[in-house]
Design a protein around this nucleic acid. Sequence first.
DNA 1: AGGTCAGTGTTGACGTCGTTAACATTCCAT
DNA 2: ATGGAATGTTAACGACGTCAACACTGACCT
Lengths: 229, 229
Amino acid sequence: MENSRTGQGGKAGYHHGDLRNALIGAGLELATDGGPGKVVLREVARRAGVSATAAYRHFAGQGELLHAVKMEAQQMLADAMERVAAGLPGDGDPGVAAERRLVGIGRGYVGFALEHPGLFRTAFHHATAGEEEDAGWGGVTSVAGNPEFRSYNMLSAALDELLAAGRMPAANRPGAEAAAWSTAHGVAMLILDGPMARLSQRDRDGVIERSIDTIVAGLLVPREHPAGA
Amino acid sequence: MENSRTGQGGKAGYHHGDLRNALIGAGLELATDGGPGKVVLREVARRAGVSATAAYRHFAGQGELLHAVKMEAQQMLADAMERVAAGLPGDGDPGVAAERRLVGIGRGYVGFALEHPGLFRTAFHHATAGEEEDAGWGGVTSVAGNPEFRSYNMLSAALDELLAAGRMPAANRPGAEAAAWSTAHGVAMLILDGPMARLSQRDRDGVIERSIDTIVAGLLVPREHPAGA
DNA sequence: AGGTCAGTGTTGACGTCGTTAACATTCCAT
DNA sequence: ATGGAATGTTAACGACGTCAACACTGACCT
């Protein structure tokens, strides 16, 4: 990471020196334990050792501040996925390796969500009307070409390899990112805030594995496709 | 439903007569356009034509009010799924019918989410620390036996039929609810608040169909299962 | 060097929100 | 009819987001 968000970079004078990053950092702290709702402008400013209104020199309002925190949370999620995928053995068979990678990415995604629920919820927080026009994610199409959206691109690459290795029927390729991402996102959300919230650790893990296995199986098996898609 | 939430049931005197339901009704209005964040106690009371503090005679605070609204939103979601499933042709082949029902339930789920984003977000809203102890959903195990959780039970029943009709390998049955639900929930969420937010109507529909088809294919195809599950 | 001015931070105030305490009205059981 | 439980009201507090007005700092221009 290039930013010195954690460092007490600036001197202690009237001018902070790195206030914008300090605010985002404090916001991340709050988001980490408490989710998006806890990212309160006044408290963020307090933690940065600055008056509340100072934040307005760097953000249009708390909506924009929260948005910045949200973007950062998204980056952290992508980092987590990348780390998991990087630590995987490069098997001899490229098809097997690709499948392993796909599963790994999914595990990393859900793992991040369970380890950092507040950040995960923040990364997908929906701005209430009036908060901030949410240019958070682009469309999938624009995402595809955008180097920023690493999470999407990692997934895409793994699927491409699966196809290239002949493990996935070509007809299954289009829209595969959406299906895979949806399942991972869904398990995470349902465990976090939904009907599976009270599962034991063991059951959670089982559900996660089962869901990932199922969607991967669905991606790999040949099937008829309706006309048009 | 037995409650007269919409009717102006009570007389217009000092005592409202049906305030609790009136408050929930107003809360649902706010949630419908604006999501959980817009369910503001004072505004809810205002809409019910009553002072803000009157709400405290019926709810411990805005957290509990929001919780009640959340429960109602969950019921509406289940209703929507039920309606879709009910309107499906009962094919001759029970296996085909079951699969159709499964797909229909998924479409109903996602359809509700896209038609009523505010209500859907409210149904899965996570109470920020301090708001309300979220006994919203039971665990999946307790859900299974609880007649209240119609959405889960509908899904479960469809899967059972699929198994009974011999269209799904028995080894795939355990955890199938979680996988199916996860995918549906995931697409909905990703379209609502995630990276697929800017898709065209056409692309959305394609993504939804593709995701549902994929998870169903994964549920139906025989595969090896790791020991232990 | 001295002056100026954009950038950055501060104070004070306003309106809204959730919540509590104290008080008022109405309903119902006796 | 009456007394208490249920239900609603007003007044006030502290926290929040935001705005307007003011203050400090530093970099640039002569």
